[in-house]
């Protein structure tokens, strides 16, 4: 009898102390500062954007954006905890406060922005969906894919776009879906499908990893818009400002010719008033963000400007994906691309 009384008591206690209710929303910046590190969410590793290396360190374009935000807040890009979350749980993990910031190749779409309680801030990479075909297939345009078997990874916007593209152009494409793109590419290489579809950036990287890259090509058509960028929980505007302007600072730095190599010199001796304002020598741009004066200096010094991180992970740097930036949307606006930062003044 004693045991049963005890158990009843314990249960009653458990019910009483259990979920008290989600607490009042704290300011994300305060929470992050108090905790002492930034929790930045990425996905399961994806080439060029967020990868693990053989030593267990994270690297990639999105990881660099996470580092930039950490550098802006703490002055130390390593005060960062990278969380890897599967795509099924990604938005929940942001909504429940587990992550402060989501920075993974998630496409900014209207329904996600308006219905999921999150805000996409500014794209740090513009991608688009395309097709890979074997060169000897004679196919030179996506419109020639009538009745073709096309491999795609399931659960992505690529799959939906492909369906739309097939229907609109009356192509009757036979869609073959895969959970893992490794298997998708293997199937393609063994002749299991006539073409592969996916984001052009990742396909370029995948082709480069094929046994004979020269035998394959990406068709010229881009069938979708894929703006990829950081997202935060809806409702904390001070926090979105910090993340948004961390990205803008990198783009602006490229425009002004400030790099991680020359930023010290620029801060000490530049006469350009835009540079001086950005690096905190003049003016008080930092006050609106609630950060220290050298927030942008820390980003550029520790992480680099946009061109530097692009080349290091995506572009032509050693060991990078090898995707040309020239002529793409990822160029600066002054070179005909879409990378544009509002003036920092």
């Amino acid at each position: 009898m004693k045991l049963s009384t005890l158990l009843t008591l314990v249960l009653a206690l458990a019910v009483m102390t259990a979920p008290v209710s989600a607490s009042a929303a704290g300011k994300t910046l305060d929470i992050v500062k108090k905790r002492g590190n930034l929790r930045c969410q990425v996905g399961t590793p994806s080439g060029g954007f967020y990868n693990l290396d053989a030593k267990g360190n994270w690297y990639g374009l999105d990881v660099a954006v996470c580092q930039a935000v950490a550098a802006a807040i703490f002055g130390d890009k390593n005060k960062l905890e990278i969380q890897s979350v599967s795509s099924q749980a990604r938005f929940t993990a942001l909504a429940n406060g587990e992550s402060d910031l989501l920075c993974r190749t998630a496409t900014w779409t209207m329904s996600r922005d308006t219905q999921l309680g999150l805000d996409f801030l500014t794209p740090d990479f513009y991608d688009g969906q395309g097709f890979t075909v074997p060169k000897n297939s004679g196919i030179t345009s996506a419109l020639q894919l009538k009745g073709a078997k096309v491999c795609v990874t399931s659960g992505t916007t690529s799959e939906l776009n492909l369906t739309d593209f097939s229907r609109v152009n009356n192509l009757h494409i036979d869609i073959v879906t895969f959970e893992d793109w490794n298997v998708r590419d293997d199937t393609y290489l063994k002749g299991g499908c006539d073409a592969v579809t996916g984001d052009k950036s990742s396909m370029a990287a995948n082709i480069a990893s094929f046994p004979k890259p020269a035998d394959h090509m990406i068709l010229p058509e881009t069938i979708s818009k894929e703006p990829l960028g950081p997202a935060v929980r809806h409702g904390d505007n001070e926090w979105s400002d910090i993340v948004r302007w961390s990205v803008f600072a990198m783009i602006n730095a490229e425009e002004l010719g400030v790099t991680s190599a020359n930023v010290d010199k620029m801060r000490a001796s530049s006469k350009n008033v835009d540079v001086r304002r950005m690096l905190g020598v003049e003016g008080n741009l930092n006050e609106g963000l609630g950060l220290s004066k050298d927030w942008a200096y820390n980003i550029i010094k520790q992480v680099g400007n946009y061109s530097e991180i692009y080349e290091q992970y995506i572009g032509s740097g050693k060991g990078a994906l090898g995707i040309q930036r020239k002529g793409t949307l990822n160029e600066l606006w002054s070179n005909g691309g879409l990378m544009y930062s509002p003036p920092m003044r």
Partner: peptide, 26 residues
């Protein structure tokens, strides 16, 4: 590994995404 802990399977699968070994999954 599905909920984001890098157990042995998670690590094995990450190899194919590391740029020097891109696509190495078998």
């Amino acid at each position: 590994s599905i909920i984001g802990l890098f157990d042995v399977l998670g690590m094995l699968r990450s190899i194919s995404k590391d740029l020097p070994w891109l696509g190495l999954h078998k």
